[in-house]
C-alpha cells in the first residue's frame, strides 16, 4: 500500500454529503452494512477506490468495534477528517438507534403477548444461525492452517464452557496466536 498523506491528492467531500451518505446507509443497510457501504462509497459515488475499501475493511476487522462503525470512522476520516468521522458514525448509528429505541419501548409493553413471543422465538433461532454462518464465512476467509483451528477452539471453549472472561481469553489466546504467526526471519531489528 502506497498511501499518500491524507492532505495531498485525496478528494475531500463536503461534510453534509458525508453525513447524508452515511445516514442513508444507516437507514437502509438491512442484514449487514458492508455490502451497502461498498455499493454507496465505491460504486455509486466513487469516493474510494476498491483496494482502499478492502484495506479499511481489514483494519475494521482487526480492531475492536463493529465493522459498520469502524468503517464509518475510517471512511469519514479519509473524506473529512475528525468532523467527517464524527458525522459518518452519527449518520450510520442514528436510524437504527432510533428504531431500536422505539422497538425497546414497544417490546416492554407488548413483548409478553403470545403472538409476539412466538415470532421472537423464530427470530432468535434464525439469529443463532446467522451468527454461525458469519463465523463460518469469516473462518473460510481468514484462517490459516490447523493451528488457527486450535486457537478458535481454545477461545470458544474457554469462554463458552469454562466461563473465562472474554477480556482475559482475548489477551491470552490473542498473544499466543500473534506469537505463533510471528514475522518470518529477524532481519535488522
Amino acid at each position: 500500500m502506497n498511501e499518500a498523506a491524507p492532505s495531498d491528492g485525496v478528494k475531500k467531500v463536503p461534510l453534509l454529503q458525508i453525513f447524508l451518505a452515511f445516514l442513508t446507509i444507516g437507514a437502509t443497510s438491512f442484514g449487514g452494512a458492508v455490502p451497502y457501504l461498498r455499493n454507496a462509497l465505491v460504486e455509486r459515488r466513487g469516493w474510494l477506490a476498491d483496494p482502499e475499501f478492502v484495506e479499511f475493511l481489514s483494519i475494521s476487522q482487526s480492531l475492536p468495534g463493529l465493522n459498520a462503525t469502524n468503517m464509518s470512522i475510517l471512511v469519514g476520516q479519509r473524506l473529512g477528517g475528525v468532523p467527517g468521522a464524527i458525522l459518518a458514525i452519527l449518520g450510520m448509528c442514528l436510524p437504527g438507534g432510533i428504531l431500536m429505541f422505539i422497538t425497546g419501548i414497544l417490546y416492554k409493553e407488548h413483548g409478553g403477548r403470545a403472538l409476539t413471543t412466538a415470532a421472537l422465538k423464530g427470530v432468535a433461532a434464525a439469529a443463532v444461525a446467522l451468527v454461525l454462518y458469519t463465523a463460518f464465512q469469516l473462518g473460510r476467509k481468514s484462517l490459516n492452517g490447523r493451528a488457527d483451528l486450535v486457537f478458535v477452539a481454545i477461545t470458544a471453549v474457554a469462554v463458552a464452557v469454562f466461563h473465562q472472561s472474554v477480556l482475559v481469553t482475548l489477551v491470552a489466546v490473542g498473544a499466543a496466536a500473534i506469537l505463533w504467526h510471528h514475522p518470518p526471519a529477524e532481519k535488522g531489528r
Binding site: 463465523a135 488457527d148 489466546v173
Partner: peptide, 12 residues
C-alpha cells in the same frame, strides 16, 4: 493472530 480469536469469540 487475532483472526482465529475473534472467530472463537463469535462461536462462544
Amino acid at each position: 493472530g487475532l483472526a482465529p480469536v475473534s472467530i472463537g469469540l463469535l462461536l462462544a
